[in-house]
Write a protein that binds this DNA or RNA. Structure first.
Length: 427
DNA sequence: TCTGGGGTCCTAGGACCC
DNA sequence: TCTGGGGTCCTAGGACCC
């Protein structure tokens, strides 16, 4: 490995601006220059804000009910989240980005790192502009591009590009000057706890963190803390993960639209979550060997007693069979359910995932082997064609009066013919 | 009245072994 | 009743990310 070469790396971070809001705007030009926010599931919190909404003072992650007044006063447009839409548009954006380089890491629904080391320094900024223009033209989504020698520094560059509306920032010269003005808590990898620790020790900007001694960081934090410091110095420690890897666990959970007391309704919700999770791992051709069920009351309700519990059930043979998983999860639920509480959220986690093709060495495996594989395939096929839950099981509930609130949905579905606009043509 | 959901990685500490 | 030292593996919980 050549140290000098790697220190000259150029990594770009492309990040979609106010991604969910931008997605909603694509299909509704009327909300283009007005304040818009997108809410989390259950219309709980603000998770995406347009610039206008930020300027009004609506904070990221704030509970919706706390900003309702502000929303009303400023006529802010509200949207419930529509992940099917965002996921689809994300795939389009990533496809465009892949056209620029194979060395790409899709980091989240609205972000990707690309290795631009092969581009000459003097051409890098122009290249970043080209990326922005093409993504905007081909998908309609605005982005910001930050480029520097490490992933952490490109995050810094991107942050600045977003803030001052530069569009593209290539952070190469006077890095220290920039870092001196960059708050320690805005650094990628520095969360609430680390911020507290750093600020307590007088480290309040990125430059001070960069200048701290290795021994102090190692002693006071962990390897991740040390990596962040090295990356701020321009030494790449966090690799570009260009391989798409399968997930190691799969969680499906939801808050209720209104609190739930009865075991019956908890059973319905757990069954529903379980079916969805099982379908997800089947799509990825994976099986699970452990299922965790969890339930909890609201941690914010100061007037009622808090209860939270979970149970993990190991499966003797790896499976992707919905019916089997539902059966196990309900046994688990009955063990942790306590009467007399008002539940706010339930969920299940499938863990110890592995490739479906990896056969079990368990002696019982051949006997227990999925007889209902064909049934699962038929269910998945039908649901893919006619919509999720076209076929379900009765235990999942029919009315589902506990299901989440979603009162402001744009109901746009780019993957369904039903939601194509109808145009009447008159002669 | 109303506070999201889905991931990954790291570490401390317990269990277990020789 | 006395009760070492070193190693591995696993898990729960914490911290972080978007």
């Amino acid at each position: 490995m050549s140290f000098t070469n790697s220190s000259k790396k150029k990594i770009a971070l492309i990040d979609c601006n106010s991604f969910y809001v931008s997605c909603e705007r694509l299909f509704n030009p009327k909300i283009k220059n007005v304040p818009v926010v997108v809410l989390s599931n259950n219309d709980g919190c603000v998770i995406s804000r347009s610039t206008e909404a930020k300027n009004i003072g609506i904070k990221m992650g704030e509970p919706y009910f706390k900003v309702k007044e502000l929303v009303k006063r400023n006529n802010v447009q509200i949207y419930s989240s529509n992940y099917a839409l965002y996921g689809d548009l994300s795939r389009r954006v990533m496809k465009v980005l892949k056209g620029f380089s194979d060395k790409i890491e899709i980091y989240s629904i609205d972000e990707a790192f690309i290795d631009l080391s092969h581009i000459k320094d003097e051409k890098v900024e122009g290249y970043g502009k080209k990326i922005r223009e093409r993504v905007l033209k081909w998908t309609g989504i605005p982005t910001s591009v930050g480029i520097s020698h490490t992933k952490t520094l490109s995050k810094v560059a991107n942050h600045i590009a977003k803030k001052n509306k530069a569009g593209v920032i290539f952070l190469k010269d006077n890095i220290d000057q920039t870092l001196k003005r960059f708050s320690v808590s805005d650094i990628w990898g520095v969360g609430r706890q680390l911020s507290k620790l750093y600020i307590k020790n007088g480290i309040d900007n990125a430059y001070k963190l960069k200048s701290i001694s290795n021994s102090w960081v190692k002693k006071s934090t962990n390897v991740l803390g040390a990596k962040t410091v090295m990356e701020l110095r321009g030494v790449p420690c966090i690799n570009l993960e260009t391989e798409e890897t399968k997930r190691k666990s799969c969680c499906v959970s939801r808050s209720f639209g209104k609190k739930v007391e009865s075991l019956d309704k908890l059973t319905e919700s757990i069954t529903t979550h379980c079916l969805n999770a099982a379908e997800k791992i089947r799509i990825d051709k994976q099986t699970t060997r452990a299922i965790t069920v969890f339930i909890r009351t609201s941690p914010f309700d100061k007037n009622r007693k808090y209860y939270s519990n979970s149970i993990t059930i190991e499966l003797p043979v790896a499976t992707d069979n919905s019916l089997e998983l539902v059966k196990k999860s309900i046994i688990g639920l009955k063990k942790i359910y306590k009467y007399g509480y008002f539940y706010q959220k339930t969920g299940i986690i499938l863990s110890k995932l592995r490739e479906a093709s990896e056969k079990d060495l368990n002696l019982l495996a051949p006997i227990l082997e999925n007889k209902s594989d064909t049934l699962m395939k038929a269910i998945d096929f039908t649901n893919a064609k006619y919509g999720r839950n076209a076929i379900s099981i009765a235990q999942a509930g029919i009315n589902k009066d506990w299901k989440m609130r979603r009162e402001h949905s744009s109901k746009i579905d780019t993957a369904s013919f039903d939601s194509l606009p109808i145009i009447n043509v008159y002669k």
